[in-house]
């Protein structure tokens, strides 16, 4: 499956059905990132029920130090 994540095209061979599964595959914890799927912000509660399709564009965002 092809996904565009944070502006970069990525190919996944393992089956990824949901956003939660994607985060697991990327070794990211669900409470660490905010997810935008095709410009829609996903509430943390829907990550495990939101399906992914070939060609989807995701932004995975996290808090970093800032002033």
């Amino acid at each position: 499956m092809e996904l565009k994540i944070n502006g970069t095209q990525k190919t996944f061979t393992d089956e990824i059905l949901t956003v939660t599964q994607l985060l697991e595959q990327l070794n990211l914890s669900v409470d660490q990132v905010v997810v935008e799927l095709n410009r829609d912000i996903l509430a943390p509660g829907v990550l495990s029920t939101t399906g992914l399709n070939n060609g989807d564009e995701l932004e995975l965002i996290q808090f970093v130090g800032g002033g």
């Binding site: 994540i5 944070n6 502006g7 970069t8 990525k10 990327l26 070794n27 990211l28 914890s29 409470d31 660490q32 990132v33 905010v34 932004e59 995975l60 965002i61 996290q62 808090f63 970093v64 130090g65 800032g66 002033g67």
Partner: peptide, 18 residues
């Protein structure tokens, strides 16, 4: 305290600031 939001570096994820 203020914090910023940035893209995760998915090839090299950092531990969570929070």
């Amino acid at each position: 305290v203020t914090v910023a939001l940035r893209r995760v570096d998915i090839d090299n994820p950092q531990d969570s600031l929070l």
